[in-house]
């Protein structure tokens, strides 16, 4: 039996499968449920300084099986209401990574201190929501912005800091490099891909907010390309995100260079049981391929790259 455990920026995870931010992360009992279903760790919904209801509905459009388009609008109860949810998740034994979003480095640092006080194991910075005015990509879309926010947060807390970056830019790896230079412990890539759906009978966007972010199987090749490119340009660990619904998808991400992966949209299409299936599936797949552990697979696809196979820069 292959060893699935991985180390991520000082966290020891029983397997590489993390619950992605935004999915099942509003209530502590749901986070606990993801842990019980077999997730190696859980990332909370992105939490801000004050509560936000999010955008009006429709907030989601489903492309059955292959993708979801969403613009939830960062709904969250606010950091002061959230410690009870973290406590419930931790009481169940979950390794909790707290996701936060702010408008500037100072707000991020303030949130980071408050989130750290809840007892989370690490922080993930949402620098990449593609559809929230004044947050996400709008404040983390350039290397300078990413660097400034990460630097301020790293100064504020002792916890590992994971920078979640956007694919909606010409050079995502430059964002990852900026995060590393500023002291981030890891980078997660990617967030959703900016996207749109139109209802032709009503001649208007389906989502109330108009633009949204695409997730799910449709974006797996996009996420893989980002992780593959970033791997050769930074030395801190990577968390791969985007369209993972099978063990083989996950192994592709590991081979591209990810140390761990986040799973989100697959929960909508397959239920929370997907975590158990991914873990057992990866174990079988690693055995079949003669790999003794998930760790051994990390970055394997880069062997031999170079003979005309270099990533298109």
């Amino acid at each position: 039996m292959a060893d699935l455990s991985v180390d991520l920026a000082g966290l020891r995870l029983r397997n590489p499968f993390l619950l992605a931010s935004g999915v099942w992360g509003e209530s502590g009992e749901s986070l606990a449920g993801a842990h019980r279903a077999g997730a190696g760790g859980v990332v909370t919904k992105s939490i801000g300084s004050v509560g936000r209801p999010g955008y009006p509905n429709p907030t989601i459009e489903s492309y059955d099986g292959w993708g979801l388009l969403n613009a939830m609008g960062l709904p969250n109860p606010g950091i002061d209401e959230y410690p009870q949810e973290i406590a419930a998740a931790r009481a169940a034994g979950a390794t909790v990574i707290g996701s936060i979003f702010g408008a500037d480095p100072g707000e991020f640092a303030d949130l980071a201190r408050k989130m750290a006080a809840t007892g989370v194991a690490a922080l993930e910075l949402n620098l990449s929501c593609p559809h929230a005015e004044g947050y996400g990509t709008e404040v983390g879309g350039t290397p300078a912005e990413v660097g400034a926010i990460v630097r301020e947060v790293v100064r504020a807390v002792r916890l590992p800091v994971i920078a979640k970056i956007t694919p909606n830019t010409s050079d995502p790896a430059a964002l990852a490099e900026a995060a590393e230079r500023a002291g981030a412990s890891a980078v997660s890539a990617i967030n959703t891909v900016r996207a749109l759906a139109i209802d032709v009978r009503l001649a208007r966007p389906v989502l109330a907010h108009g633009l949204g972010g695409l997730s799910g199987r449709a974006i797996k090749p996009v996420g893989l390309a980002c992780v593959y490119q970033i791997f050769s340009r930074i030395s801190i660990p990577l968390v791969g995100v985007g369209g993972i619904s099978t063990a083989e998808d996950a192994l592709e991400y590991l081979m591209a260079g990810a140390r761990a992966v986040e799973v989100g949209t697959a929960v909508a299409f397959e239920g929370i049981g997907v975590f158990g299936r991914l873990a057992s599936g990866l174990s079988v797949l690693l055995d079949e391929l003669g790999l003794g552990s998930a760790r051994e697979a990390v970055g394997l696809a880069h062997r031999g790259a170079g003979r005309g196979a270099a990533s298109p820069a």
Binding site: G22, W24, S27, S30, A32, K45, S62, L68, P75, T265
Partner: peptide, 20 residues
């Protein structure tokens, strides 16, 4: 309720999601 797909957690009720 928001997504109705068992994903967004808005309708969490204890260990359940009302939508699914």
């Amino acid at each position: 309720m928001k997504c109705a797909l068992g994903m967004c957690d808005a309708c969490a009720l204890g260990p359940f999601h009302v939508c699914v």
